[in-house]
């Protein structure tokens, strides 16, 4: 178990090793200069104390020294900047083949949804060694998902999706904290991440799941809400054909082009008039207050499944049945 006086957190993701390496470098560099400054202050204070050195040697200054202690720290800072920027860019760009998990934060709990349909609260099961991408949104205030053993953190905003990712390296159970102050029970908005061997994870995924995949939930919702009336899978609908839309560029009626990602789909459901596809009228009603964040995620998962006739991981993610005609991509640029 944990020691009484832990000094360094466990390392359980690929990013943790890189973060720690930079941390150790920075501890060495800043430790060296800090100790040097402390020693010099003490040495100067004692060596030149008034009783020992009553007569001052006046020195005006030195441009060479000023240049040295401007440029040397600057050079060291640039090493830190470039090294740390490399880690950040890796953190900021989830690999394309990552497993997806959807996260909804609310005062004061974490809800996780796997595309396969498994839902959890304050507990997240992930497979060992696979990259996992979290697509996150808040139902109320800003939260922040922090996984210290993975050295990963990302604020979770109301109103739009943020993403983060990690690739685990060690099975076990790890802390999950909310790190953005969110009200009364902020310190209770905690949980755990359980990293499982892939086989055990597959077994866990398929166990006790009656609801079907997230995409199939989305498909049902898509029909219940009557979306199919206008968004037909041919060119006759009053709304754009959504088949193959996900991830593609969309030309808007004001000439702009946006990518049809989760944030665009969410916005188009809640605020349909904000970005209208070129060639269509702004006739869609808003679904604000009708669909909640989890349902929005399932709708996005459904639209995504319409763009992926076959999955890279056979068996792990069953896509919802795409309606037949595999033609007609949404819009050309």
């Amino acid at each position: 178990m944990w020691q009484t006086l832990p000094l360094w957190p466990a390392r359980a993701s690929t990013l943790a090793g890189r973060t720690d390496a930079l941390m150790i470098f920075m501890l060495a560099v800043t430790g060296f200069f800090t100790v040097m400054i402390f020693i010099l202050i003490l040495v100067f204070a004692l060596r030149f104390r008034r009783t020992r050195n009553p007569i001052v040697t006046h020195i005006e200054g030195s441009n060479a020294l000023e240049a040295a202690w401007t440029l040397i720290p600057f050079g060291i800072f640039m090493v830190m900047f470039i090294w740390s920027a490399g880690i950040y860019m890796t953190w900021a760009q989830p690999p394309p083949n990552a497993e997806e998990v959807f996260v909804v934060g609310k005062q004061w709990m974490w809800k996780f949804e796997h595309p396969e349909g498994q839902r959890e609260i304050d507990q997240l099961h992930v497979p060992l060694g696979r990259a996992v991408r979290l697509t996150m949104i808040s139902q109320d205030v800003i939260h922040s998902l922090f996984l210290p053993e993975f050295r990963v953190k990302q604020d979770v905003l109301p109103g739009r999706y943020t993403t983060t990712w990690f690739q685990t390296t060690k099975p076990g159970s790890y802390h999950l904290f909310c790190t953005q102050y969110c009200g009364t029970m902020h310190s209770g908005m905690i949980g755990e991440v359980v990293v499982m061997e892939p086989a055990a994870y597959q077994a866990w995924l398929s166990g006790g799941n009656a609801e079907g995949s997230l995409a199939s939930t989305g498909q049902k919702l898509f029909q219940q809400l009557g979306c199919t009336t206008c968004h037909r899978f041919d060119t006759q609908g009053r709304g754009p054909n959504l088949l193959g839309l996900y991830g593609k560029p969309v030309l808007l009626d004001d000439g702009r082009t946006v990518t049809a990602d989760d944030n665009y789909i969410r916005e188009s459901i809640l605020t349909p008039g904000a970005k209208v596809v070129a060639g269509f009228k702004p006739i869609m009603p808003t679904f604000q207050g009708i669909v909640n964040e989890e349902q929005l995620l399932s709708l996005a998962a459904y639209l995504k499944s319409l763009s992926q006739p076959e999955r890279r991981q056979p068996g792990s993610n069953r896509p919802a049945e795409p309606p037949h005609p595999a033609s007609a991509p949404a819009r050309s640029r």
């Binding site: 740390s84 490399g86 922090f146 790190t179």
Partner: peptide
């Protein structure tokens, strides 16, 4: 002395990769 330590640890927070971990801790 203490400002030096405060400043030095500010370098960790300016370091993007490390800030991801230590931010809001």
């Amino acid at each position: 002395g203490l400002f030096t330590m405060g400043g030095m640890t500010g370098l960790y927070l300016a370091a993007l990769g490390i800030d991801v971990h230590v931010h809001d801790t």
